[in-house]
């Protein structure tokens, strides 16, 4: 019998009622101003009970609260760390640039990953990668070498991004949990599509696209790389024959529309876990749902703070889990 997480799943299902619903999001969008939106979220229990003037600290506290709950429920958090890999590798890119180009890149270091950003910076600075976790050490060394030899930040980014997706895919397969494996595969495919579209728009070579794209299920990356080296219409044509044909419509609108479509696709993938009573999958789905919710709240609050037209903001709101 697969390992059961009855207690954790029950608590998570009970917590799901606190996730923001579409009606909550509508309420948030229709609040008179930024202050009213912030107070609505405080009323929904957002943050750590403090008086917030800026939304970023509130969202950070909300995310920390969520991770504290997950650590309490499931002390072996390895399956969830897959969700932190993008932050970890983002920090690696920023660390390499911070150490070897300008100090400003250090501002791009993000908290909330599984590896302390300072540790990454230190490792890159000393070229001693032994303190870094296994999944990152080799990539840190090779990406730094690439950057020092070529001075090309983009080549360095490609190497790190590729390692990131490969790590996520490997961890997804190793987790033995269907939803984590499917999430990893979907994320890899969506990232490949994004890279192919950008490569086509910027006229990159086939070799560049091949180096950047990670083989994944549901996509023929060889054909995609070939299409990306030609033009954007070839990329659309290539996608028409895959499970991601719906993405073409979104891509034709804009990149942000595609990102919204991608997030909705992930929500679609995890939504079925609401009825799963025993495995770790609903807990993983809850974490993804919370991340997605935070993203949506950030979009609304940024819009409110900058007095953007709410119609524009509404277009960018992702589907929610509940």
């Amino acid at each position: 019998m697969a390992e059961q997480y009855t207690y954790a799943v029950s608590r998570i299902h009970a917590r799901e009622i606190d996730l923001l619903s579409a009606a909550d999001m509508e309420q948030l969008l229709s609040s008179a101003d930024y202050g009213e939106a912030m107070s609505y979220l405080r009323g929904k229990g957002y943050g750590a009970g403090a008086e917030y003037f800026d939304f970023e600290p509130m969202l950070k506290d909300e995310t920390d609260k969520m991770w504290a709950l997950i650590r309490e429920l499931i002390p072996e958090t390895e399956p969830f760390e897959t969700l932190l890999r993008q932050t970890d590798f983002q920090n690696l890119k920023a660390a390499i640039k911070a150490v070897y180009t300008s100090e400003e890149a250090a501002d791009c270091l993000e908290s909330g990953g599984s590896v302390d950003p300072e540790l990454i910076v230190e490792a890159v600075k000393l070229k001693n990668y032994s303190e870094l976790p296994e999944f990152m050490a080799e990539t840190a060394e090779s990406a730094t070498e690439i950057f020092l030899k070529t001075g090309d930040g983009q080549e360095c980014d490609i190497a790190v991004d590729r390692a990131c997706i490969e790590t996520i895919l490997r961890e997804g397969e190793e987790s033995g949990v269907g939803v984590i494996r499917d999430y990893a595969r979907l994320l890899a495919a969506l990232t490949d599509i994004k890279i192919a579209v950008r490569a086509a728009h910027t006229g990159k070579t086939k070799g560049f696209a091949e180096r950047a794209l990670v083989p994944c299920s549901g996509l023929d990356v060889g054909a995609l790389a070939d299409a990306a080296s030609k033009n954007i219409d070839e990329v659309y044509k290539c996608l028409e024959h895959t499970d991601y044909r719906d993405a073409v419509e979104a891509l034709k609108t804009s990149m942000s529309e595609f990102e919204k479509w991608s997030d909705n696709k992930i929500m679609e993938l995890i939504r079925g876990q609401k009825a799963n009573p025993f495995t770790i999958a609903p807990v993983f789905a809850y974490v993804l749902a919370k991340i997605n919710e935070t993203k949506a709240v950030r979009i609304v609050l940024s819009g409110k703070k900058n007095d953007l037209e709410m119609g524009l903001v509404r277009e960018r709101i992702r589907d929610l889990y509940v």
Binding site: Y7, V9, S10, R11, H13, A14, P277
Partner: peptide, 14 residues
Amino acid sequence: GMAGEAAAGVVTED
């Protein structure tokens, strides 16, 4: 026992 685990999870929250 199994139902008790689930019940404890729910009662922790409410």
